[in-house]
Design a protein around this nucleic acid. Structure first.
Lengths: 210, 210
DNA sequence: ACCTTTACATACATGTCTGTATGTAAAACT
DNA sequence: AGTTTTACATACAGACATGTATGTAAAGGT
């Protein structure tokens, strides 16, 4: 077989990653052989082993290519709670629109066993969680300073609560393809989650954006 | 080898389940062979195949033996929100105290790929989630009737939010053995989660139990 | 134009796991 | 007491995945 150009090689590499995600989400990470992935990508295992050390390395690449779903803007339009809500809603929308991201997270949350080398991905996931915690804490702190929050609310605890809420929402949302349990009300849950933090009943239906 | 009495047989069956949980939590479900489980339990694969159809069946038994962590009391002492909080805290405490339950949930949430026959366990998990949703909705409805909640809060959405929060807390808690990220503040997060629902700032530090 | 490296395909050797079939001795039943 | 069933242990055959070793033809550099 003719040797491929660098661009073509990079293309194959990307194709292998994409196909991996697909097969992983069908059969689970451990149950898929590199042979299946290679077949799906129209290559042989030789190609897979050329681009990746082993299956764990490949899975890492899938994770890396997907990146984080949730990112908060520490500064920007609207008050801190509005920015928080927006971040959560944007993440949800990406989950709905981006089929590849959806598949990636389905694999990471439901179709993978975090053991041995694979623990690296879980650690990365938890690292993302820690980063979110920092950002959310910052936003809650800002909101507290702006007197948007009840006095007794501790920003760091609130951030942890939001992290847990989001993590659980993601996991349940992915396992609820009929939408009966969670998907239909996911956005409402996010809105209400943020709203239930606003101090007192001062704010009623006003959610104006600046 | 001498045939065992019924009681002894039941004992081996239970031992196989317990050892499965242990090995699963070490190596992940897919990566553990029935041979390993049998060895750990001091029997051969013959015994495992006698008691269980296959690995999925065995995993189902582990799940069944563990049962649910979270149960809400629709009636009982305290108002609806207090009962909700108590349910959440009791579940957290069991997670801390009951090593077997902890291992089971670690396996179910981090060490298993829900594919093929294993999907049954995920469906069961989601069924438990749906049951929780029903109970929590009931409690929130009761709380709303008792004017404990802000007027705009919808009981069903609030229940979903609590379900997500709890699911995420469970998952993150299990992946945070150092305690830095989540474990140290888990109870506080639960308390604050429930508290942030109470209407206005009417209730400050009073959390009296009747 | 030559040489080296690349980007794979092919072939192989090995280990491992699964399911089933068969053996067996004692428990449990009649 | 005799027969049947139970609760395993043992043995076997087949499938499959992995990692590596080797081949190869063209790309890319000089």
């Amino acid at each position: 077989m003719a040797r491929k150009t660098k661009a073509e090689a990079e293309q194959t590499r990307h194709r292998i990653i994409t196909c991996s995600r697909q097969v992983f989400s069908r059969a689970g990470v451990t149950n898929t052989s590199l042979e299946e992935i290679a077949h799906e990508a129209g290559v042989t295992r030789g190609a897979v082993y050329w681009h990746f050390k082993n299956k764990a390395d490949l899975f890492l690449a899938v994770r890396a290519e997907t990146g984080r779903l949730l990112k908060l803007e520490r500064t920007g339009p609207g008050d801190a709670l509005q920015r928080l809500e927006r971040g959560l809603l944007v993440a949800l929308r990406r989950l709905e629109d981006d089929a590849e991201a959806r598949a990636s997270y389905e694999v990471m949350l439901w179709k993978c066993e975090y053991v041995g080398e694979f623990s690296a991905v879980r650690d990365d996931l938890m690292g993302a969680g820690a980063a979110f915690l920092a950002d959310a804490s910052h936003l809650y702190q800002e909101a507290k300073t702006a007197k948007l929050l009840p006095l007794w609310l501790e920003p760091e605890v609130a951030a942890l609560e939001t992290l847990c809420f989001y993590a659980g929402l993601l996991k349940i949302w992915l396992a609820d393809p009929t939408g009966k349990l969670c998907r239909s009300q996911a956005a409402a849950a996010i809105t209400q989650h943020v709203r239930s933090r606003r101090a007192g009943t001062l704010r009623s239906a006003s959610a104006k954006r600046s």
